[in-house]
Design a protein around this nucleic acid. Sequence first.
DNA 1: TGAAACTAGTTTGTAGCACAAACTAGTTTT
DNA 2: AAAACTAGTTTGTGCTACAAACTAGTTTCA
Lengths: 107, 107
Amino acid sequence: MPSPKPDLHAILDLDRTIHEPARLAILTVLAAAEEVEFLFLQRITGLSKGNLSSHTQKLETAGFLETLKAFRGRIPVTSFRITGEGRAALQAYHRQLRALLPKEGKP
Amino acid sequence: MPSPKPDLHAILDLDRTIHEPARLAILTVLAAAEEVEFLFLQRITGLSKGNLSSHTQKLETAGFLETLKAFRGRIPVTSFRITGEGRAALQAYHRQLRALLPKEGKP
DNA sequence: TGAAACTAGTTTGTAGCACAAACTAGTTTT
DNA sequence: AAAACTAGTTTGTGCTACAAACTAGTTTCA
């Protein structure tokens, strides 16, 4: 009987910053794309601007992404990059999820 | 290129009732044990009584568990059972998690 | 026997959070 | 020069997780 039930601590210790679906979606995109613009992120996630703005600020405060402000012509453009810390946290979160999932092919 | 990035909808459509770690922990125990007493649940999860009470009430309202009130001698004992609906929802949640995890063995 | 301590859980109060509407600041169009 | 648009932030609201305080009864012990 190696691992009969998923470890409850693995569940209760999940990183809440990443566990929020909106932020997990954001980090997932950033992890795949390296640098992503605000509007692109808004469109593929379907989040409202306000919601996206506050979630990216929260992820920035956590150190998981950095915000890059620039201009395209005269129009402001905000982009995001995942940080090393953010990538590490996302991978750790993935490991936590795997740990709590029952083995594949269980009824 | 079959499934290059995890589906963002799979992330944003996660069942919030189960996504909350405390409730996921509760359902995970119930799924493994068939019938579980309040105090046992409290001890292995480490949740406070108040917190456990409100989460189990929420899960009951969602139809995911049933509450059984009884007496042991003259002492009241509350137990819980996962419902068929609850088991199905937990399995669906597990499938959703698997869908959003990158393939095993990715950097 | 009656007061104190314990059992088993619920209700209440609070701080924090997700979310969208309203707003800011500037640009382009008409 | 007014109207409409772009890009994003701030504000307000309603919900939610959490523990402290409470309810209702039981057992211990002085």
